[in-house]
């Protein structure tokens, strides 16, 4: 930690928690000031813990952390900013939101500040808490995941073939090249490349440019959203940390 200061206060979104020892939990947090961190919440599972229900996944808190001798932060305090309780009140919101948090856990670099990604994540959870159907929740999460790619510097190239530069007959997606390829280049010794329909390409462009606030209203077929989902997941798989 800079300047020997081993304590930190920062807004953080609770990403996941798992039981540890008798009454502790180890949490994954996505903080505004230090990116993804792991921290131990001692005694949190006791009914009289003052951290209590503040540190459930999807909660936005002002967290106080201290780095002791181990590599794990200790949580010394937490104040609720938003509980986003509505996410936990519907199974479909939790199911869809879990994929968003899984991205944070798997691909977001540890201890790397990214305020844009943090703000986007918080806004996405906010919109998720308002989603009135599974389709709306899925729309928010898909749009948020796509935009999180961009926030991490992985803007997919969707306007021209990443092999030959052709801007017509684009028909597949190559995660290793980070964008689309044309029909002549598709299948030329690439392992991870997959077909992308015209509708899939249009939907992918749309989720990247449309504001997150409109994401819940976008309706595409399951097959098309599956294509977008696949492109986003494969880029994360390929380039994420």
């Amino acid at each position: 930690m800079a300047g020997g200061n081993r304590s930190l206060e920062t807004p953080a979104l609770v990403v996941s928690s798992r039981r540890f020892k008798e009454a502790d939990q180890i949490l994954t947090l996505y903080t505004r000031d230090r990116g993804r961190v792991s921290a131990i919440a001692k005694g949190i599972r006791r009914t009289k813990s003052r951290l209590g229900g503040r540190l459930e996944p999807f909660s936005l808190v002002e967290i106080s952390l201290h780095l002791g001798r181990s590599s794990l932060y200790s949580i010394t305090g937490a104040q609720t900013i938003r509980t986003f309780q509505a996410v936990r009140d519907r199974l479909y919101r939790m199911d869809e939101g879990a994929r968003l948090l899984e991205d944070v856990r798997r691909y977001f670099p540890e201890e790397e500040e990214n305020a844009a990604a943090f703000n986007l994540l918080v806004r996405a959870v906010g919109y998720l808490s308002l989603a009135e159907s599974r389709e709306a929740a899925a729309g928010v999460v898909l749009a948020a995941r796509s935009k999180l790619l961009v926030a991490h510097g992985y803007l997919p190239e969707l306007d021209s073939c990443q092999k030959c530069g052709e801007d017509e007959f684009l028909c597949a997606f190559d995660p290793s090249l980070g964008g689309v390829v044309c029909r002549d280049c598709y299948g030329e010794g690439v392992q991870d490349c997959f077909r992308l329909s015209d509708q899939g390409l249009t939907a992918l462009r749309e989720v990247l440019v449309r504001p997150l606030s409109e994401a819940a209203e976008v309706r595409v077929s399951k097959a098309v959203s599956g294509e977008v989902e696949r492109a986003v997941s494969r880029i994360f798989d390929h380039h994420g940390h």
Binding site: K48, G52, G53, R54, T80, T83, Q85
Partner: peptide
């Protein structure tokens, strides 16, 4: 709220429930 606990120390989620 847990019996014997102080309202002052209750977290927002528990208190709202």
């Amino acid at each position: 709220l847990p019996m014997g606990g102080d309202l002052e120390y209750a977290d927002e989620v528990t208190l709202s429930r």
